[in-house]
Design a protein around this nucleic acid. Structure first.
Length: 555
RNA sequence: UGGGGUAUAGCCAAGUUGGUAAGGCAGCGGGUUUUGAUCCCGCCAUCCGUAGGUUCGAGUCCUGCUACCCCAGCCA
């Protein structure tokens, strides 16, 4: 799709512009550093577009680095899905994917260097003791009794930790900084802990793993990252980031800049909650079309371009934000409106019988694939005596605002004739099942000759040739704008977030899947074929409905 | 006064040397239309969290205040 032409500036690009102008850097290197402990979501897309977008616009490059320092939470399944999602979004990382675990040897060496400089020590305090000694937000912490252990002893103890001589939790390596610092993360943070876990990349090689704060800055430096972009909650951590870089021997000084993470109304974007939705089966999986994951959006019918456009439109700042869902929907509508061919589908069918149409006969009509784009060509439509129409497009009586089919009134069948409803047939419950009508044979491709105006147009599917299909209509996953603020966000799940309907689509759709993978079912919305489709029954996901001013007016 | 951050329309967001409030989404009018879609045209902050101050002039500078977010994992 045609993404917003101008590259909106933001404070990070301004910093880069300045660095370039001042000769602080001559080339730009960024990185996207997910922990492989879940699927990527729309919030990650913001970071991906930021990092890869900057690399592209400044002729730099961007690394993909898995921040895999906690094997207990991570899995190879996620490193695979993450790579797939980044590629799908249309970005290419520099060289091979990297892993923080690629640097475990170097990281260990830097830890030893810190010990040798008297800037790190092995602490045998229990976690509880450490917590008590750390102080609080308003009170300073107290020095650990192990803080003054000799360098030689610390070297020996760290070697023992590394050799697996101590059980998990028995001790940890701490940076010796300042227990009275107003920054909690500077109160002698743990930089290495013992973990006897299988690591998806390094297997059983290690039983000690470096912590995020120690790992991230060093990994950035090793990779020559110039601008390390992360979210706001790491602002305090920047002091530790800089401390580590200053106190080890490394010739690169990357800098961290923080921007606000994305919040989207009526959904959740925290890994923890997303994992819970999947594990407790509130959704069908990571790629459930209701999920804000990249995989979910993809299956829902969102295009890579629409997600990129969304990221462009929301911008990058340090303000806490809560973006309305309409912003995302506008992006996919803008894309599909130009790129999705039109088709007709009836989601909740009732039968329309054209009484004056010769029985047993049929004809082939031609319909444009796009009303405003002739280059998309035309298609043939079978038309006969019986067609399916939408139940909601017919009423026995209605006021003039209802521009659809009403008894004794006329309406146009899209791409076909004008018909007039004569009588109805109902089932035992009183629901209309069949409408009998007559058609004006002289209205194909033209208005009635006598000048009468037919305002309404409804869509239809030929009974004889239509194909059965299931339609999955999605609504917001939660009933409240900010489910994360609820006591238990699970209670706010919208029970009607998925509605399944069975109806008919014009024939041949699977055989001519458009490049975008989506169709606009006229007057209904944008749909894509779901992977659950079988030869017996097609399954379509509604990506988003058409803008519907009628629904708001009501009647 | 623990520290770190942020405050511009319903939402997102430009505004960077002070010169008299971009744009997008949503909304509201109107036009075109064989999709109540699209498209087109118009409207939508005398005001920038708040109270003062400096200045010929402040969203932009200064001071006070208020609100909200983040930090006390051997998570990231």
């Amino acid at each position: 799709m045609a993404e917003t032409e101008h590259r909106p500036t933001n404070f990070i690009r301004q910093i880069i512009d300045k660095d370039l102008a001042n000769g602080v850097h001559t080339s730009i290197k960024t990185r996207f550093p997910p922990e492989p402990n879940g699927f990527l979501h729309i919030g990650h897309a913001k970071s991906i577009c930021l990092n890869f977008g900057i690399a592209r616009d400044y002729q730099g490059s961007c690394n993909l680095r898995f921040d895999d320092t906690n094997p207990a939470k991570e899995d190879i399944e996620f490193v695979n899905s993450i790579q797939q999602d980044v590629k799908w979004l249309g970005f290419e990382w520099d060289g091979e994917a990297r892993y923080s675990s690629d640097y475990f040897d170097q990281l260990h060496g830097f830890a030893v260097e810190l010990i040798e400089k008297g800037l790190a020590y092995v602490d045998f305090s229990t976690q509880e003791a450490m917590r008590e000694m750390r102080g609080t937000l308003t009170e300073p912490g107290k020095n650990s009794p192990y803080r003054d252990t000799s360098i030689e002893t610390n070297l020996q103890e760290f070697a023992k930790m590394t050799a697996g001589e101590y059980p998990e939790g028995h001790c940890s390596l701490r940076a010796k900084i300042d227990m009275t610092s107003p920054f909690m993360c500077m109160r002698d943070p743990v930089i290495y802990r013992i973990k006897f876990a299988h690591h998806h990349q390094t297997g059983e090689k290690w039983c000690v793993y470096p912590m995020y704060d120690f790992t991230h800055c060093i990994s950035d430096a090793i990779e020559g990252i110039t601008h390390s972009l992360c979210t706001l909650e790491f602002q305090d951590n920047r002091r530790l980031y800089d401390w580590v870089i200053e106190n080890i021997t490394i010739d690169c000084t990357p800098h961290q800049y923080e921007f606000s993470r994305l919040n989207l109304e009526y959904t959740v974007l925290s890994k923890r909650r997303l994992i819970q939705l999947v594990e407790e089966k509130h959704v069908a999986g990571w790629d459930d079309p209701r999920m804000p994951t990249i995989a979910g959006l993809r299956r829902r019918g969102y295009t890579p371009g629409s997600v990129r456009e969304f990221c462009l439109r929301i911008g990058v700042t340090k303000m806490d934000n809560m973006v309305e869902m309409s912003m995302l929907e506008a992006c996919i509508r803008d894309d599909l409106n130009v790129n999705a061919p039109r088709a007709m589908a009836v989601l909740e069918p009732i039968k329309l019988v054209i009484e004056n149409y010769p029985e047993g006969e049929s004809e082939t009509l031609t319909a444009p694939n796009h009303p405003n784009d002739e280059s998309m060509g035309t298609r043939n439509l079978n038309f006969g005596r019986e067609v399916w129409i939408e139940a909601e497009d017919f009423r026995e009586s209605a006021n003039k605002k209802f521009k659809r089919l009403v008894l004794d009134k006329e309406v146009r069948l899209r791409n076909a004739y004008v018909v007039k409803a004569n009588r109805v047939e109902k089932d035992a419950e009183g629901n209309v099942t069949t409408v009998y009508c007559t058609y004006d044979a002289d209205t194909l491709g033209k208005d009635p000759a006598d000048g009468r105006k037919v305002k309404g147009v409804i869509h239809w599917v030929d009974v004889a040739s239509g194909e059965p299909a299931q339609f999955r209509l999605y609504d917001r996953l939660f009933n409240v704008p900010n489910p994360a603020a609820e006591d238990d966000f699970v209670d706010a799940i919208n029970p009607d977030s998925l509605i399944v309907k069975s109806g008919w689509v014009e024939p041949g759709l699977p055989g001519r899947v458009p490049e975008v993978g989506s169709w606009q079912f006229e007057r209904t919305g944008y749909f894509c074929l779901d992977k659950d489709s079988t030869p017996e029954q097609l399954v379509f996901n509604q990506t988003v409905g058409l803008r519907d001013t009628w629904a708001k007016i009501g009647d």
